[in-house]
């Protein structure tokens, strides 16, 4: 693969902590190999900042292979940058060209308060799971795994929903900061399986209630979430959740 080294201008959101007001800073990065990943470009910049006695840019990252869901940069107006079905860590500098200015912002949503620079607090997702994103089965109670055949199409659809990596790009992309794609993927993963049926109603009711409590917005089916999802989770899951929620609501005693 032909590649070259390029020079770029970076406009990055800097914010010392959650109470700081924050603002953009501009940096020149020089001689960046197009074989680098986007985060490696940040590593290079941070090394330079440290050398200049400046505070390096804090950003979340861990596995750097597109599965842990920790990386979270809003690059040139798009969560995870310009590539389709991709995470920030898998974005490579081939996506950019000489002299370009790249604007990098944190996920913005009231439910994801900024911790520092580009790092945000996504513990709201944990609390949504705690509200019902599980199957209540204690260790050791399980029957033989093949005692319960599951229609392949359903199992595949469940897997497709379970592929969610919980990165929050859906929230970042949504004009309403809604967590519906995340929530519905988590619910659909379990609701599509026979094991998930006993808690299906309470699961959706409680998870939606928690999402609202956390300060996420309501879904208006614009589809922006689906467009940026690194794992290509479909908004079909949102429709599934809506139906489950409506049915649960109609038959509930209260």
């Amino acid at each position: 693969m032909e590649h070259q080294n390029i020079n770029l201008k970076l406009k990055v959101w800097r914010q010392k902590n959650s109470t700081d007001k924050g603002g953009f800073e501009t940096y020149d990065v020089k001689n960046i190999s197009q074989e680098m990943s986007f985060l490696e470009m940040f590593d290079v910049l941070n090394e330079e900042l440290i050398a200049e006695d400046k505070d390096p840019i804090a950003f979340d990252h861990d596995c750097r292979e597109g599965i842990c869901g920790m990386c979270s940069m809003y690059i040139n107006g798009r969560p995870h940058g310009p590539w389709e079905a991709n995470t920030t860590c898998q974005l490579h500098m081939r996506a950019f060209s000489e002299g370009e200015t790249i604007v990098v912002e944190p996920w913005r949503a009231n439910a994801f308060p900024i911790i520092k620079d580009l790092m945000v607090d996504r513990t709201a997702f944990d609390r949504i799971i705690q509200a019902g994103g599980y199957i209540s089965v204690n260790t050791g109670n399980a029957v033989d795994a093949n005692a319960l055949p599951i229609e392949k199409a359903k199992a595949d659809a469940s897997f497709a929903a379970a592929a969610c990596i919980g990165c929050g790009a859906c929230v970042a992309a949504c004009k309403n900061s809604s967590a519906m794609l995340f929530l519905s993927a988590k619910a659909a993963h379990l609701n599509l399986l026979p094991q998930g049926q006993p808690e299906r109603k309470t699961r959706v009711m409680n998870m939606v209630a928690q999402m609202d409590k956390e300060g996420f917005g309501a879904c208006t089916n614009t589809g922006a979430c689906e467009a940026v999802c690194p794992k290509e989770i479909s908004i079909t899951n949102i429709a599934r959740l809506n139906l489950d929620y409506t049915c649960a609501g109609l038959v509930s005693d209260k």
Partner: peptide
Amino acid sequence: NIIDQCVAQGVPFAREYGGL
């Protein structure tokens, strides 16, 4: 036992057309 436990928790392992 691990496989049994995981399936009971809803881990979506790959399946054949017969559902197993």
